[in-house]
Design a protein around this nucleic acid. Structure first.
Length: 385
DNA sequence: AAAACGTGGCC
DNA sequence: TGGCCAAGTTT
């Protein structure tokens, strides 16, 4: 360090306005109108709406979030309303948005704010950071956008803009972002960075000629801004196989609730067995032993050679029929191929964690997309429904 | 610290 | 049309 007490002030007076001022001017003229957002320069919106939108937007596109945000706040207009919602209603309302731990943490967070903070969000980044589901990014974003705090907001957009701006290898994004974050209008600055990242400084084919920061951008100067940030190698995505079951009784179908931990945790679902890694070399493997699972008629007993375990997890001993075809669903870290088996029973209890659900109202069950796809195929292709 | 954790839109 | 990617967090 230089020992000059004015050093930091000199830096922020010199560097920060060079970036923040033109960016904010651009934002004043080009801010997107979004339902969770206040117009540039106006008072901050309800922290509940800021928080909700930020959590919904984690790894999720604006296009997907917008309608879900609207219906969410119509149903639960305030934090107090939402804190009283049931787990079931919240998980069903989140269905289709993915990353369901967000919904579980959302409710935990709302109840924590109600119980420990008098029903109002804390207004400091550190206190926000301690709430369930708020990591470094979201705590900074809420502090800046909802409370006008100066906070260094770093998400994928900021990372992209900043690495290009400085032609940086990505070693210390936070320090670089800190160096251009203004003391005033930190919330607008953060949202301006995101708008710039989504409309101008895009991952591919950035529109540098429209960029308000072009003159100060080292990445533009290199002639290949797209090289930043460096992209990481993608991991191989293994394939798993499983079975999804449709058990009909009268006009109802059996639904279960998945365990709170793990994939699709806490969500309603059709019963399913284990999702097992495909055998590396199915044809070369020794023939599987004959399997009596399922007993009597049924897919596992028909000797199709599909192997043992396909009926594992079946919710009943029944005359299971395979549907033609399979469901293919791609998750973040594996690809799932599911066979579909259907049966009908006359009288059976739902059992622990199960419930008979009217088929006509399946749309309101809040099934995650995998099971919604499966249910659609059952209803279209299967006469046992 | 690497891996788990979903989904829909876009080119 | 299949891969890439999005306003990340948790363990």
């Amino acid at each position: 360090m230089c020992g000059d007490p004015c050093h930091r002030a000199a830096v922020s007076a010199k560097v920060s306005p060079q970036i923040a001022a033109p960016l904010l001017a651009w934002y004043d003229a080009n801010a997107r109108s979004l339902p969770w957002r206040a117009p540039p320069g106006s008072p901050p919106p309800d922290p509940y709406r800021v928080w909700l939108s930020e959590v919904m937007l984690q790894q999720t596109t604006v296009a997907a979030v917008r309608p879900r945000f609207e219906s969410w706040v119509a149903r639960w207009p305030t934090l107090a309303d939402f804190a009283e919602a049931s787990d079931d209603d919240v998980m069903a309302a989140w269905a289709g948005l993915g990353y369901y731990a967000r919904a579980r943490n959302l409710l935990k967070c709302a109840r924590a704010v109600a119980a420990d903070h008098g029903g109002r969000f804390p207004d400091t980044e550190a206190a926000l950071r301690a709430l369930p589901g708020l990591g470094d990014y979201t705590a900074a974003a809420v502090a800046a956008i909802a409370f006008g705090r100066r906070a260094v907001v770093v998400d994928a957009n900021v990372k992209r803009v900043v690495t290009r701006l400085f032609a940086d290898d990505g070693g210390n994004i936070r320090a670089l972002a800190d160096s251009i974050t203004p003391d005033d209008r930190a919330g607008d600055f953060a949202q301006a960075m995101m708008d710039l990242g989504s409309s101008i400084c895009t991952p591919r084919a950035p529109k540098c000629l429209l960029c308000p920061l072009r003159e100060d951008c080292a990445g533009f100067a290199t002639g290949d801004p797209e090289a930043y940030p460096a992209k990481k190698a993608k991991a191989e995505k293994p394939t798993r196989h499983g079975t999804i079951f449709w058990l009909a009784r009268g006009e109802d179908v059996l639904l279960v609730r998945r365990p709170d931990k793990g994939l699709l945790g806490g969500m309603r679902a059709l019963p399913s067995g284990p999702w097992t890694l495909a055998h590396p070399h199915p044809s070369a493997a020794s023939p599987l032993p004959p399997s009596p699972i399922g007993r009597g008629k049924g897919p596992a007993a028909e000797g199709g050679g599909k192997g043992e375990g396909e009926m594992e997890g079946a919710p009943a001993q029944a005359d299971w029929q395979w549907l033609d075809g399979e469901i293919v669903h791609v998750f973040t870290h594996f690809r799932l191929v599911c066979r579909l088996a259907a049966a009908r029973v006359e009288a059976q209890e739902a059992g622990a964690g199960g419930e008979w659900w009217p088929v006509a109202r399946l749309g309101q069950a809040g099934l995650p997309t995998l099971f919604a796809k499966a249910a659609e195929k059952f209803r279209r292709d299967c006469d046992a429904v």
